[in-house]
Amino acid sequence: MVASKTATPRHRDDREVFLGAGAPAARPRRRDDRKVAWLFLAPVLVGFALFYAYPTVLGVYYSLTDYGLLAPPNLVGAENYRDLVNDDKFWNALKVTGYYVVLNIVSQTVLALALATVMHRLTQSVAVRAMLLVPWLVPNVTVGLLWMWMLDANIGFVNHVLRAVGLGTTGFLTSPTWAMPTIAGINTWAYTGYTALLLYAGMLQIPRYLYESASLDGAGEWRMFTRITLPLLRPVLALVLVVSLIGSFQIFDTVAVTIRNTPGGVTRVIYYYIYEQAFTNFRMGYASAIAVVLALLLGLLTVVQMRLLRASRSDLA
C-alpha cells in the first residue's frame, strides 16, 4: 500500500531521543512509526476498504437503482423507497419482526435474569455455566431442525407428551397463530443461557460485602435481589438488553429453515424478506432499500448501545 513511500528514517533514533530527553513523563518522545504502522495495518485496511466501506456506499447506491443482477444497475431515484411505503408485505414483515422481538426479548431476558441470579447466589460452577452455553454454541440451523423435530405435529416428542397428559396435539409451526411464538420460543431456548452468562458476569462486579451485610441485617434473598442486585445491575442489564435487541431484529436462520412448514408468510421477518427480494425475486435494488431502512433502525439502537456502554463503565468502574 502506501507504506514504502511514506517511510521516514526518524523512528530509528527513538532511543536516543528518549534517553537524551531524560524526562520523567511516560511518553515524552515524538515518534513517527508510519512505515511499520502501514505494514501492520495493511491486511485490515484492505479488508475494511473492500468488504465494509465500499459495499456500504454501494448498498446505498443500489437502493436508488433497479438492479436484477444480470443487467447493470439502472438509476431510478427514490422509486424503491416510494414502492416500500406502499408495500404491504414490507409493513407486514416489520410487524412480524416486531412481534417476534417483543416475545423473544421479554421471555429471554426474564428467564436469563432468573437463571443468572440463581447461579450468582448458589453456585460458581464452571460446568453449570458451560452446559447452559451449549445451545448458543450450536448453529441456529441445527437448533431450528432439532425443534422442528421435537415439535412435529404427528410424532414429535412434545406432542407425545401432550397426548400422554390428555391435552390435544398442536402443529406449533404449522399453525398460523402459533408459528411466530414458537420461533420466538425456540430462539429463547437457544439464547437464554448465553444471556444469563452475560448478566452473571455483570453480577460478579457487584461487591460481595453488600450481600453479606444485608444478610446480617436480616434481609431475605428476594429483598437482596430487588434492593441490591437489580439496581446495581441496571447499567449492565440495559446494555445486554440493547445487544439482544439488535441481535433479535436480525433473526433469519431459524425462520429460513422452518419457513416451508409455516403457513404462508406468517413468519416472514424483515431479514427473510430482504433475502427473498434479493435472491428469489432478484430485486437487488429494492432489497437494498429495505436494508437501508433496517440499517437506520439498527444504527439508532447501536448509538443507544454505545451510550449505555459509556454509562455502564462510569457506574461500575
Partner: peptide, 30 residues
C-alpha cells in the same frame, strides 16, 4: 504506534460496527 491519521482511521472502523451485516451482504455478494 504513532502515525498520521491514526484516530481518523480507527474512528471509521468503529463506525463500521453500526452497519448491520445484511447491508454489506448484498453488495459483497455482487
Amino acid at each position: 504506534l504513532r502515525f498520521p491519521g491514526r484516530d481518523l482511521v480507527f474512528g471509521l472502523l468503529v463506525a463500521a460496527l453500526m452497519v448491520p451485516p445484511i447491508f454489506t451482504l448484498l453488495p459483497n455478494f455482487v
